[in-house]
Amino acid sequence: MAIKGSIVVDTERCKGCGVCLGACPNQVIALSKNVNGKGYNYAEPIKDECIGCASCAMVCPDGVITVYKTKL
């Protein structure tokens, strides 16, 4: 059985601080090359290896990350 996770970033509220990047055990997150309305390079998942551990959400100062997890 595998654990599969996914995150949804509220990109408009993300300030691109990058704190979530280091918190992710699987380096799933990176800052986008694109910017949001405020001009921030927002965080986005770039890989499929998310395990839904919510570490990123835990350290996110702006609470912009929602986390989902399922067992396959």
Partner: peptide, 30 residues
Amino acid sequence: IIKPENLVYKRTNVLTDAVMHYCPGCGHGT
């Protein structure tokens, strides 16, 4: 995966919807 039954973490409703004025990465938000 992104379905209500799989939700493990979301922003609490005890915070308002206001975007915090803190600098990016500031511990206050956390």
